[in-house]
Simulated scan of single mutants.
Amino acid sequence: MQNKNRNNQVYTEGQQSGKTDYPIASLLRVGKENAISSKELVRLSGSKSVRDLQERIFQERCAGAIICSGSGAGYWLPKDKEEIRQFCDTMEKRAKNTFNATKSARRALELPEGQLDITE
């Protein structure tokens, strides 16, 4: 089991954790190369489904846990700041793509009923 370095919130090798504040994070290994798949983490955590697992991970992240994920690799604890940076970049790009996907729909909501948008 790994422990959080309180100064930079990156997990460090060889230290034991006595905390159980983050039950999902406590199941994870350090480094992307040691990621655990969603399916396996559902089993290990006793979650009801992948959706339930994602909700629990969201709650732990909101409470301060740094749980990395991305590109179908699964979930892991960051081994260094670069892994944190990559995780942040991935999540920010995903959020931006989601926002961009709603632009045309938002524009359509602004048009009066029956009016066509001829600006394109």
Score class of each variant (00 low, 15 high):
S47V: 04
A63C: 09
Y22S: 04
R85A: 13
R29L: 14
R6Y: 14
R6A: 12
A25Y: 02
N100M: 12
G31W: 08
V10K: 08
G14F: 07
K32Q: 08
K19W: 10
G46N: 05
N7K: 14
S17F: 00
L27S: 09
D21S: 08
R107E: 13
F58E: 15
L28Y: 02
P78M: 07
V10H: 10
N100K: 14
K81N: 13
A73S: 09
V10P: 11
G31F: 05
L28F: 08
P23R: 04
G18V: 12
V30L: 13
V10D: 10
L44D: 04
C68V: 03
L44A: 10
Y22G: 00
P78A: 01
K96D: 05
E40R: 07
G31K: 08
V42L: 08
R107M: 12
G70D: 06
Q9I: 10
T102N: 02
L53D: 00
T98L: 05
W76R: 00
S37C: 00
Y11V: 11
E13V: 11
P23G: 03
T20A: 12
T98G: 00
T102R: 07
K4S: 12
L116Y: 13
N5G: 09
T20E: 12
K48W: 03
K103G: 03
E113P: 12
V10I: 15
E33A: 09
T12Q: 14
A35F: 02
S49Q: 00
C88W: 06
K19F: 10
S71I: 11
P23M: 04
I67E: 10
Y22E: 03
Q2P: 13
E82T: 12
L44C: 06
T102V: 05
